[in-house]
């Protein structure tokens, strides 16, 4: 490696370190947004005696979309490890699967939880105007869904750039940013899933 190239790599590494710190500070900031929503959930979903309650939701939907999102996180990680080891094909395929699973997650929420797209076999129950249950569910899943949509858009951009050989073993900050962003979206859901579907006793 020539001295000039080594210098350029060093510059890139410094920039990446700064970018990484910026990204994590952004996550730290978002923590307060999602934390605020979680606090809202625990403040509003209580009965007169102060017990935590939750609405009666379709548990199968909750479990399936959660597993789908976790699986997408696994493939995202695989994709990042692949580009770091120079396995371009593996990187692209894994990234594609991640984006696909992200879309599946979104459709799951939109069709089965929100009932925005009516399908004959889906029984729909709760809307945004249905008191605090509706408000909090749509607030939490809606804010999360906005992040999933941006994450999927990010994946599409990185996938297209990846096909054009923009990323190499040493220089793939774009992939890393996309990956940690996607994992962050997953991390949020890790706490939202029990908060919405599992914690408290169900109230009709």
């Amino acid at each position: 490696m020539s001295a000039l190239a080594a210098d350029a790599i060093e510059v890139y590494r410094t920039a990446t370190r700064n970018n990484r710190m910026g990204m994590w500070l952004f996550f730290f900031s978002e923590l307060f947004l999602f934390g605020g929503l979680l606090i809202t959930r625990f403040a509003l979903w209580v009965d007169e005696d102060g017990h935590i309650i939750r609405p009666e939701l379709d548990q199968n939907v909750g479990l399936i979309v959660t597993v789908v999102l976790l699986a997408s996180s696994y493939f995202m990680n695989r994709s990042e490890v692949a580009i770091a080891n120079g396995r371009k094909r593996d990187f692209l395929v894994s990234l594609w699967i991640t984006g696909f699973l992200g879309v599946v997650f979104l459709l799951g929420v939109v069709i089965f939880e929100w009932g925005l797209i009516h399908l004959p076999f889906v029984e729909h129950h709760i809307g945004p105007t249905d008191g605090v249950f509706g408000a909090v569910i749509f607030g939490m899943t809606g804010m999360h869904a906005i992040h999933v949509i941006t994450g999927v858009a990010f994946i599409v951009v990185v996938w297209r750039n990846g096909k054009r050989d923009v990323y190499t073993e040493e220089r793939h900050w774009g992939v890393e940013a996309c990956a940690i962003y996607w994992h962050y979206v997953d991390l949020v859901w890790i706490f939202f899933y029990p908060a919405i579907y599992l914690i408290g006793h169900a109230v009709h």
Binding site: T40, L44, P128, T129, D130, G131, V132, F133, G134, A135, V136, F138, G139
Partner: peptide, 11 residues
């Protein structure tokens, strides 16, 4: 119409 602050629906 999401009633976070509307006491009618528990807000």
């Amino acid at each position: 119409g999401m009633g976070f602050f509307d006491p009618e629906g528990g807000g």
